[in-house]
Amino acid sequence: MSPVIEVRDLRKTYGSGDTAVHALRGLDLTVQKGEYIAIMGASGSGKSTLLNILGCLDVPSGGEYLLDGIDTGEFDEEQLSLLRNRKIGFVFQSFNLVPRTTALANVELPLVYAGVRRAQRRERALAALDLVGLRDRTHHRPNELSGGQQQRVAIARALVTSPAIVLADEPTGNLDTDSSREVLGILDRLNATGRTVVLITHEDEVAAHAMRTVRVVDGRVAGVLV
């Protein structure tokens, strides 16, 4: 089975000259299909940079990133946007829902850009909201939802396109314990149905949900805990 994510000698430098910051210094990582991985590390270790590159939100300064067997290094911005749309579901710490827009419309958003027809879009968005237990909140706007509910909408949006991987950047970082448990439960269920999940966390309880934990120190993988 070919890996979903294959990263070789990944480098990322911000700035140049004396003020250059090396966020990633030759990082290697392989994630197999159906895996559930937690990435841990101190702040400034480069774990967020790694996840942004995995999510095609940022481009590396050097190294290789193969997503689902595709070398992303040769892709231009137009093709990367296609990858983000079809292959990746991203969940942010700060939810990042489009303001003044209903939960349903937020979940439908990736499908709009994928060119899915209206009726089918609605059906798939409702199914995704059903999966995160928010079928009764479809017409609420983000400011009418609790933090946990907003994050569940964001997860519904991430999985509505049936992506190859779901990436989550500290998804429970802004949530209380109950909401965190719900969100982690949803991610567990997603993984149980075969979806690949990569999440960043600095909490051991969260990491405990994963099959293995990757520790990032100074822009390199320091160790893998199974």
């Binding site: 999510g55 939100l57 911005e77 137009e78 946007s81 296609l82 990858l83 983000r84 749309n85 079809r86 991203f90 942010f92 990042n96 829902l97 489009v98 303001p99 958003l109 990736p110 850009y113 994928a114 949006r157 396109t161």
Partner: peptide, 16 residues
């Protein structure tokens, strides 16, 4: 800008 970022993150191409 944030909204634009969100749209791009879920796969909005430049043209849209």
């Amino acid at each position: 800008i944030r909204e634009i970022g969100i749209r791009k993150a879920v796969g909005a191409p430049r043209s849209s």
